[in-house]
Simulated assay, not measured.
Amino acid sequence: MEYVFFKDEGLNQFHLDNKELFEERLLEEAVNVKDKIEEIKLIGNINLIANAHNVVLYVVNGNEKELIEFGKKEGIAWAKNNLTLSFKIEWIQAIRMTLWDFLNKYRQLNSEKDTEWFYKMGKQINRLLDVFFKGFFLSYSHYKDDLIESQRKLVEHLSVPVIPVSSSVSVIPLIGTIDEYRAMIMEEKVLQTIRDHSIQTIILDLSGIAEMDYNVIQKFMKLFEGIKILGCDPIITGLRPEVVSSIAKLDMSFSKKAKSKATLQQAIKDYL
């Protein structure tokens, strides 16, 4: 297929006149991406070919503002659909190489364009493609960071659920392993909840906790003190024998820090 060229046409029109050749050359460059084009379109409704033409036109026309916004939009789309970042990097590089080939061909066909113009246009291509990728990557990263943060907060919330059973009594059922990080989250959340909702009695059900090490036990002792300082009564329920044994071996005791009940049901019955 021969290149189409009309005298006095700009590089943008030259690109439009030869879209099929551009696409063919682009797919030759994007070795790993070309087989994923339909899959990416299906997953994220992203048309890589159409988007490549948009990027090229923004670049050759010097539309920097529009290019940045387009890059941000693309970044969010890729992050939202968990598309592989390496594919995007290869795709942008393929666009760069193909556009340079087109720039060189355009100069060969247009005798009015000298070396200085070619150099200036080449710098513009490289700079604006870098601008596009920067906008893409920053929005991609921000979206992922926000998602991770929201998931972290959700995990923290679920790991220390505070369940109100009346206007003044709340229950915290704890299940699984309590490490120092989770104990720290528990302390922050419990004390904040007591302050915010004027809770008078907080019941910590430990029936789902099979073991505690020294540092975690210390965290609980500190938590009970903080609860009392806020004018709230800490109640422990469901202490398992192995946990009681661990506490006794360390010559420590919860009894001076908090009241204890055998079961959660008993505590709720007594304090409601």
Rank of each mutant, 00 (worst) to 15 (best):
M212N: 07
M186Q: 09
M186L: 15
K153W: 03
I172V: 15
D213G: 02
N215I: 12
I203D: 01
I194N: 04
S207W: 12
Q218L: 04
P173S: 11
S141D: 12
S168H: 11
D196L: 12
V216P: 01
I217R: 03
E180D: 13
V171P: 01
K153Q: 10
S168T: 08
I163E: 15
Q192A: 10
K153H: 03
S150F: 01
P164L: 06
G176I: 06
M212A: 05
V169P: 00
H197F: 11
H157L: 11
K144E: 15
Q218W: 04
D213M: 07
A210T: 10
I172Q: 08
K144P: 02
Y181L: 13
E211T: 14
L158N: 08
S166C: 02
Y181N: 12
E156L: 12
I178V: 15
P161E: 11
E187A: 03
T177S: 08
D145C: 00
I163C: 06
T193N: 09
Q218I: 07
E187N: 13
P164R: 01
K189Q: 14
Y140G: 01
I163D: 15
L191G: 06
S141M: 09
P173N: 13
D196M: 11
V171M: 10
D145F: 05
I209M: 08
I172D: 09
L147Y: 12
V171W: 11
S207P: 07
Q151W: 00
I185P: 05
V155H: 06
V165N: 10
L204F: 11
P164Y: 03
D196H: 13
D146I: 00
Q218F: 06
S198P: 03
I178P: 01
Q151E: 07
I178M: 15
D179L: 15
D145I: 02
M184D: 15
D146Y: 02
S150E: 09
S170W: 06
D146K: 04
V165L: 05
R195G: 01
I194G: 05
P164G: 05
D145Q: 04
S167T: 07
T177N: 13
R182S: 14
S159L: 01
I203W: 00
